[in-house]
């Protein structure tokens, strides 16, 4: 009997272990992956706005000298370590994907948890840094560094937090056995987001911490 299949996407309906939808689309790539890449390219303009705002206002606090300046506040060794942790989370993320692609669900879960843990470490470091700066007298309104620094890194931190929640959701689905290997794309998409947040940090780290402020 004819069965004109419209929705084969959800895993429960996916025909026998065939996770790759690319045969079905005009571009040869799956819809969700295309969507996440589009979303990420949109995010590039979002973070671009804050990074360029940071560059525009950088150094203006010397003009309106008030409150502590970045060269007094920034603890480069500490943030280098948390940045390193975030960078490593990208490695664990990609290892998680590799694991599910070869059907190794135990390793998938380990690497997912590791990624979330690394991410949490990074966010924890950020929380520590924020409180430390606040203690030293840098508030949102103290000077332009306070304004741009807290908002830019805070929004990035929020993105990382969303990523952690996402990873934990994926992990719990896997624990419930609802993440068969055919659905590796769910991991891949979470990973794309995660890596994107990581590469945004590569630039933020360079912009705020490494490039000299005068």
């Amino acid at each position: 009997m004819a069965q004109a299949v419209v929705t084969t996407g959800s895993s429960e309906l996916a025909p026998g272990g065939h996770a790759d939808h690319s045969h079905d689309t005009n571009t040869g790539v799956s819809n969700p992956k295309l969507a996440i890449w589009l979303f990420l390219s949109s995010e590039a303009l979002f973070f671009g706005a804050f990074i360029s705002t940071y560059f525009l206002y950088r150094g203006r606090d010397t003009q309106f000298l008030k409150g502590p300046t970045p060269d007094k506040l920034l603890n480069i060794p500490f943030t280098s370590v948390t940045s390193f942790v975030l960078l490593m989370s990208s490695l664990t993320m990609v290892l998680a994907l590799a694991a599910i692609q070869r059907g190794d669900h135990r390793r998938l879960r380990i690497w997912l948890l590791a990624t979330a843990l690394f991410g949490a470490t990074f966010v924890g470091g950020q929380v520590y840094e924020f409180t430390e700066f606040y203690r030293q007298g840098l508030h949102l309104g103290t000077n332009m560094f306070g304004t741009t620094f807290f908002v830019l890194t805070g929004l990035h931190g929020a993105h990382v937090t969303v990523g952690i929640v996402w990873l934990l959701l994926v992990w719990s689905r896997s624990m419930q056995g609802r993440l068969p290997s055919e659905k590796s794309e769910a991991v891949e998409i979470a990973g794309l987001y995660w890596h994107f947040v990581d590469i945004v940090w590569i630039f933020i780290f360079t912009a705020i911490y490494l490039i000299p402020t005068h």
């Binding site: 706005a49 804050f50 206002y57 606090d61 008030k66 949102l140 304004t147 908002v151």
Partner: peptide, 25 residues
């Protein structure tokens, strides 16, 4: 969205993105 976040922060959380008196533009 970025610009509106900045406006909201300026209005409610004392940031100075667009406050010329503190170096905003």
């Amino acid at each position: 969205t970025a610009a509106l976040i900045m406006v909201f922060m300026d209005r409610n959380f004392h940031t100075n993105f667009f406050n010329a008196a503190a170096g905003g533009d």
